[in-house]
Design a protein around this nucleic acid. Structure first.
Lengths: 217, 217
DNA sequence: TAGATTGTTAATCGATTAACAATC
DNA sequence: TAGATTGTTAATCGATTAACAATC
């Protein structure tokens, strides 16, 4: 994935957290917040918070701090949450169905407009208010209904060919739940949710933890 | 999450990738591999790969490279994949059910031994070969059936209290799918799968991408 | 004005990459 | 032995933290 922007991914990945915590403050009717207070809440250092926010502009005011409402909205805009994203789900298995039914999804402006599967027995089933379509119809579907994000929820074996189909359709971003690193052109955004790697990390840390316990004795 | 080990999390998070790619090589009957070849496959630099592996021991041989089979098994052991982990799932909604039915899970030695939900209408339903139990019975259940990993698949509002219940039971690791940062004692391992943050990152990158396209014109 | 807190530059820390001697 | 490739040290790069002048 090529990137020309000067904002580092480390900063980008903290933005959703700022947004979430500011939303909480807003719900609690907090009007202003200093980087120091935000530091306590988020666990990032106050210095880092000021650095991060300053990548995008001077949202604060010396001697006062940040206006919660303003900052929340600004970060929302930076994250692109002020618009609607059209998504399709490839693979109507457990994961695909879970995503389709995930209400948070809708609430945040991500709209599922189609679900596809390769299994003829699954095609035709209805999920939420949609009918599962066959993989073969993706390209014609996307031509008529522009799609921003394709979600890959297929088994590993199918994931690469599905990704290539999505790229051919002109889909610009892929949310990948299959346990592979997809090969796609540089211009296509790929965000992986590698559950297996996440789980293996737990397994490693559990083992490490046990070994350290043993040593103590 | 406290850690006394000298291995950095950056290294730990690359281990599952090494493991996966080595598994692929093994399936293709590749016997040996050099750090340079691994570099091409994984996208990490050869130098980094050698550094990473050397955190755990000298698995390679000068002039030869690494034995695929041996390295695969060693990394498996380091990741703690040579043993069984007992897990319970808290929350039998879309995500909880998807995890329960996720076959990869079983294959890798993670066994779901119980599913719980707070909704009386859901309690008693069967998922796979299990009956959904009420939250209130978690503590007695864990006392009789030791649990390694608790998976939190509840809505945000319930996640903190569920985490606390798990900690009281003595569960040592939490796989958290709720969009919060749980507050638990330092000794408890928490691995977050924050889908919303992952999605917001895509949204940011899409917006960034569009802005750069505009500038080109 | 005095106090608070930002924006921003400089210092530090950690992670990645380069280089090369050791050795199979 | 010559060639290849590791293990490991040193150099570089990037990200985080500290410090403080600017200013509300």
């Amino acid at each position: 994935m090529e990137r020309f922007s000067s904002i580092s991914m480390a900063v980008v990945r903290r933005l959703p957290k700022y947004h979430r915590y500011l939303g909480d403050l807003l719900n609690n009717d907090v009007r202003r917040v200093s980087s120091q207070e935000l530091s306590k809440i988020t666990g990032f250092t106050a210095s880092q918070i000021r650095q991060d926010l300053n990548c995008f502009g001077g949202f604060g005011q010396q001697g006062y701090g940040y206006n919660v409402d303003e900052l929340y909205n600004e970060i929302g805009k930076i994250l692109g949450l002020d618009r609607l994203y059209r998504t399709i789900i490839m693979g109507a298995g457990n994961v695909g169905r879970a995503i389709a039914n995930y209400t948070f999804f809708d609430k945040s402006g991500f709209k599922v407009i189609g679900i596809f599967d390769s299994n003829p027995q699954v095609v035709g089933n209805s999920i939420k208010d949609m009918t599962v379509m066959p993989f073969s119809s993706v390209e014609s579907f996307v031509q008529e209904n522009p799609v921003d994000i394709g979600v890959i929820c297929t088994p590993r074996e199918q994931s690469q060919s599905v990704a290539e189909a999505l790229v051919r359709c002109g889909v610009k971003a892929i949310w990948n739940f299959a346990p592979t690193d997809l090969k796609v052109p540089d211009s296509v955004i790929v965000e992986n949710v590698h559950l297996s790697e996440s789980l293996f990390t737990i397994s490693y840390l559990l083992k490490e933890h046990e070994e350290l316990e043993k040593k103590k004795k």
